[in-house]
Design a protein around this nucleic acid. Sequence first.
DNA 1: TCATAAATCAATCATAAATAATCAAATAAA
DNA 2: TTTATTTGATTATTTATGATTGATTTATGA
Lengths: 259, 259
Amino acid sequence: MLFEQERQQKITNYVEKNGRASVQELCKEFEVSESTIRRDLKVLEDNELIQRAHGGAIAKNGVNFEPTFSEKSDRFLEEKKAIAKKAVEFIHEGDTVLLDAGTTTRLLVDEMKALSIITVVTNSVVFANELENYPKIEVVLLGGKLRTETLALVGPLTELCLNQIHVDKGFIATNGIDLEVGLTTPNLTEAATKRKMIEQSNQVIVMTDHSKFNRHSFAKFGTIEQIDYCITDDKAPNEVLRALEQKGIKTIMSPLGGE
Amino acid sequence: MLFEQERQQKITNYVEKNGRASVQELCKEFEVSESTIRRDLKVLEDNELIQRAHGGAIAKNGVNFEPTFSEKSDRFLEEKKAIAKKAVEFIHEGDTVLLDAGTTTRLLVDEMKALSIITVVTNSVVFANELENYPKIEVVLLGGKLRTETLALVGPLTELCLNQIHVDKGFIATNGIDLEVGLTTPNLTEAATKRKMIEQSNQVIVMTDHSKFNRHSFAKFGTIEQIDYCITDDKAPNEVLRALEQKGIKTIMSPLGGE
DNA sequence: TCATAAATCAATCATAAATAATCAAATAAA
DNA sequence: TTTATTTGATTATTTATGATTGATTTATGA
């Protein structure tokens, strides 16, 4: 008999190996009920490990998936929008900001378009493209190897570029925030880049929706103590936020529907 | 039985592959009703993955169909295409190549898509975007300040990135090629970047249509002697090409209409 | 040009499948 | 023990789909 996490790990493997899997197929394979499989799929989707479909799941990093699709099915979009609205208040005229690639930070890009003169440093080709039409925003793109799944730039070259700069505020995305483990993401190379980003930011602002709390992924890139501000939505677990506050980290809970 | 998203993905592929598809054709192919196909097409159109038409759908920016508007208005397009066809012959499996941003080099990107495993270093965000879907090509984007007019990355950060790499072949675009003045471009910062590119390339391959000969622009970025190969079209002035050959530079005149 | 026919479409509805929500039993942890 | 967690069964609810219908669009011929 498998433990819950073991089964979920194996389901991920199964889906990745076959590119897809139906709920019924997984029931047979793991000898559990449909309810259990569906619960597992939900968890795995929250962790962005698979892509759910009506009737089963599809592998994520499969060649088959356009970013537009994952964007469409982006969970917690409203929460992320609310978070972005709060985050943009941190940016003032003349600031230099660092913007980490990620689905939550993506929505901050939209908010930034209305701002006056600022410099935005980013490792996301998508963000750079989005911002290039706004003459008041100077865009600096970090170099590096292009990760095809996320269109983010990572690797030694990115870190080298980061070494050359220092920004007022760094907006960092994360896949997991856990009081004990800290900040984590699934990809080791990406983690190294994020680590350097935190180093080069005067203020570290973590943007994360509630689903990332008390979760951890594979690669650690920072400790809780390195955070200056944590912006999240109003479904984030209160006890964690209190613990953060006790460590001197300002937490901002953004209510849904904006201001 | 396919999941909804899978079917939509496959429809996109189908349309892209054939350039077009009728509703009935798709019904047969995927064994679903017209209603379903129409719903799918609507979703795909909303996601800007295809273009709908009465009776079916058309591929969007067809990889190898009609040229886009900006391409159409491009001067000497046919010449540039011919140049790109010659240039791509210089690239072999396992090569690392440097691709300068420019309208002539832009057409080399299209040619490169068919190639096997290579590494492409570029300072063009557009090129990086274009190539990211081709898994056999590893894309390294240089960092730097984003020039909004050309979507090229330039500046000290770009040069710093270039310092870290060395490539087999560098494909360089130019605004002017003159026997006395050398290679020139209108922008000083861009010139500095090109200069560094030439330094870091084992072989320097200049791609230029005939209109750039005997012309010079404001900022010089290289001497004639630094060129290893010069690829141009069959309207280039013969006396200049002869002079280049005498200096030991191989010149390739690409006849219009390909091979 | 216009009128008519044919094809295609969007909107609606019914249905079957899949899902989320709920609850109780089983299991594990305190 | 009690308490929390995981699981499976049950039930509303939601979703995907195909058929139908009337409206649009396109094609055809005068």
